[in-house]
Amino acid sequence: MAIAYPTTKDYDETVAEGFWIADFYTSTCGPCKLIDKILSEIVLENPDINWAKCNLEDDWDMKDRYQVLGTPTLIFYLDGEEKGRMLGGFHTQSEIMEEISRILYGE
């Protein structure tokens, strides 16, 4: 498992292998802090889940390139292929885990 801080330069390479959650956030976004807390717990218990923390303030190009409509946005990747998205900060830990489970193991 890994926690990475990609920019547009190395984003695709970062999420290319394994299961990744790309977490698009800004430092001033309150809901992003809630999602950060939830993902911290999820990656602690699940070493196969990788977390790409994408601070849009560091690289605004990522917003358009990955069609991020607002923060927080989570994009789920399996071996580089986008498998799902969640927008907004009001998702519970179990809702996020259900989405991960659906992607990893199917319905």
Binding site: N46, M97, Y105
Partner: peptide
């Protein structure tokens, strides 16, 4: 059930994902 009919499934035990 297709979800549980696989040659290989990797599970992190106690993760709550499976």
């Amino acid at each position: 059930l297709p979800k549980f009919n696989k040659e290989k499934t990797v599970v992190t035990v106690g993760s709550g994902l499976y």
